[in-house]
């Protein structure tokens, strides 16, 4: 199954978070706009995805594995 979420800006310039779930090939849970999105007081018109994390890419936009880079030491 797949959980998809994306950001869109409404007509009033406020960013909104949308979510949809696909189960198998043909079952969809259309959640639509998420109401309880966390926003900062400093910039309430901005929101972010619920998924977070970080990636270390090299200059070629490829993931950089520190363990692999140190493998030959």
């Amino acid at each position: 199954m797949f959980e998809v979420e994306w950001l869109e800006v409404d007509d009033d310039y406020v960013m909104q978070l949308y979510q949809t779930v696909r189960i198998g090939h043909d079952i969809y849970v259309l959640r639509g706009r998420k109401e309880d999105v966390s926003r900062s007081a400093d910039n309430p018109s901005y929101c972010s995805l619920t998924v977070n994390g970080v990636y270390f890419d090299n200059r070629n936009d490829e993931p950089f594995s520190l363990v692999l880079a140190c493998a030959n030491l």
Binding site: V4, L7, I23, L49, N52, V54, D57
Partner: peptide, 27 residues
Amino acid sequence: PYIKDSYRVVVRKWMTKSQIINKYGRE
């Protein structure tokens, strides 16, 4: 470098039928 600043993301999950119904059954 943070995923939260991306504009969309897809998360694939492997669940049993019971887990799916337990989590999404109400929706």
